[in-house]
Design a binder for these strands. Structure first.
Lengths: 345, 345
DNA sequence: CTCTTAACTTTACGTGTGTAAAAAAAGGAC
DNA sequence: GTCCTTTTTTTACACACGTAAAGTTAAGAG
């Protein structure tokens, strides 16, 4: 059962009786080798245990076939969905994906960028931390290789390829919906960990003013240095409900995790938000977090098209890598969100 | 602002006026170089842009300083928590972590194992898919380098280093609790995607019999080929509640995601599980999924010590790498779970 | 000034593979 | 059997750095 292990292609070549360059060609593209030789190689390969050295192969190629992905945070199903989409798309394109997580630490994010540079990665897909990001590190990465931002786009780097959600549209959509079928909503902000937070706030304000309502924003006081969104939503609303406020209002949460905290606060006060309850409490979110359908009441929200974002990001980086497109002509792709009407609003 | 870019250490050495071997020593361990020289190098480094080539450095070292991690699934906060713990611990030990996700596909898992072998990774930490895993691929990986299993342990590989939860203890603990403060629970199984599913079932049965109650298991009929736990929990209980069954029972779910579905089914039928409601419906879970506190009612569960598991796995792999321990003397480490008493049971 | 030692430079080879050019072999048509 | 084409082998260099040995320089003590 335990086959003899062969470490180098050289050894393998003598074991099989084929020259090393032929083996090299075989591993890169078997179509470059005669079928009869292929058979002989595969036959030999079945007798032994051999894997080409990853580093040696990448060291000397024009293209490493690797793309680096940076995500800011792991314990958030939005990013895992996005990452899944990216990995699947990259796999189909025959690319190896190396993922690094920033763990909400700019220094780690910067180090990940360095790592990708030292790997001569073909391209980098980055969902940045946001405000806190080490901008210079990211810009250095961008100046060195094909680079696409995902999800959140720092203000200081506006002219860079970007794929994300059209928050003006998505937040506008649910704001408009809430206004149309009930009372105009108040906005429960999220900690301003990135620029999306502000974009959504602004989109809410714009849509409210467009419809002739007065925007009203809640929960901006908290410091924005952490990702404990549920706590934030719950804490803000607990305080309001406890003093008898907002119990019959419509509340649009900046994202679903804030909304999850909001729903919990409501439930603790015996409140059941719902779209059927006319004039009563309504709570809505943003993102379509995978657990939304299982909350009670199931959370009405705007879905981000994570799948499209991931696919497009990979597609775009492939274009940049292929040189089909000059990178001084950046493209901003914003996908629309769509309503997921459930029970809560 | 844009510094001249230097590609190789050779170029750098002439630019700074230090020999290349000295630079090599400097990058590996500055303490091997005189302070005065260090200053000169760092001064020169500040003037240019240079990063040592990742592949070239790893190619020729005895140790690559990399550990490979495989997780089965991304969109599950249990695994992201575990991964986070592993990454933090590895970072502190100065290791580079390369993570690959199996996306619940045995072929992808096997390919990840191959990749790690081709990288001459120092060691591999694997949370396997379970039943479906390509056992031979994992065994080949294990035979080649330090190898530690996490979370789930296939039956066919019992004699391998493993770090996980003591399910007999954890499931026993919550079973005992439920029996002590109320009606003996029925067990709502999870799709049998891995061996933990069976371990928990068996632990439940054993504890029930020990206490003199008759075990009763629900939801084993569904095919176990997917990870849609919430759907599973909801579907099973919807059917029961709809026909008026189980509405006053205690229900122990095999994991929290199943419990989330169960809670939702309960809510849809106007049922509010709770420990205070004597003789009434109770629902409990397993794992302490991060969202448990925000469900309504907040989910009572047994917490897995993901942090300890991740840390221990890294510690163990370091021991194996360091040769402090022979790998034909595997160690099975099982961490106890602890009760998280909340409202639901 | 000489000696000793630490620090550095020079030189050379190793890591496993990609790749190009020239030479040799294989295969097929006539 | 000869010629031509396709495939393979031979040879050689490249990739960027690790590492060891031998020789050179610098620094400090006496």
């Amino acid at each position: 059962m335990t086959k003899p292990r062969i470490k180098t292609m050289e050894e393998l070549s003598v074991a099989i009786g084929v020259s090393r360059p032929t083996l090299s060609r075989f591993f890169q593209d078997p179509s470059l080798v005669k079928k009869k030789t292929i058979d002989r190689i595969e036959e030999g390969l079945a007798q032994v245990e051999y894997v080409p050295n990853f580093f040696a192969t990448r060291l000397n190629r024009k293209s490493t076939g690797i793309i680096g992905v940076i995500i800011p945070y792991l314990n958030d199903l939005f990013f895992t969905k996005l990452l899944e989409s990216v990995e699947v798309a990259a796999m189909e394109a025959g690319l190896t994906v190396i993922t690094q997580c920033s763990h909400s630490d700019p220094a780690i994010e910067a180090r990940a960028a360095e790592t990708f540079m030292s790997m001569n990665v073909d391209g980098a897909l980055v969902a940045p931390l946001g405000d806190q990001s080490d901008q210079s590190a990211l810009l250095r990465l961008k100046s060195r290789l094909p680079f696409v931002l995902m999800d959140s786009r720092p203000k200081t780097m506006p002219n860079i390829d970007f794929v994300g959600t059209n928050h003006a549209q998505s937040t506008g959509l649910i704001t408009e919906y809430l206004c149309r079928v009930g009372e105009p909503p108040i906005f429960l902000a999220m900690p301003r960990v990135n620029f999306n937070a502000m974009e959504r706030e602004n989109a809410y304000i714009a849509k409210m003013e467009e419809l002739g309502f007065e925007p009203q924003i809640l929960g901006t006081r908290l410091r924005g240095d952490d990702w404990h969104f549920e706590d934030h939503g719950q804490a803000v609303l607990e305080a309001e409900f406890a003093s008898g406020h907002l119990t019959e209002r419509s509340i649009l949460c900046a994202n679903d995790r804030v909304a999850i905290g909001a729903l919990h606060a409501a439930a603790r006060h015996g409140l059941t938000p719902g779209r059927t309850a006319k004039g009563g409490l309504r709570i809505a979110g943003h993102d379509d977090y995978p657990l939304c359908p299982y909350l009670y009441p199931a959370l009405t929200t705007v879905a981000q098209n994570t799948d499209a974002i991931g696919k497009k990001a990979v597609y775009r980086i492939l274009q940049l890598i292929g040189g089909e497109i000059s990178n001084d002509d950046p493209e901003i792709t914003l996908f629309d969100g769509h309503l997921e009407l459930r029970q809560s609003a």
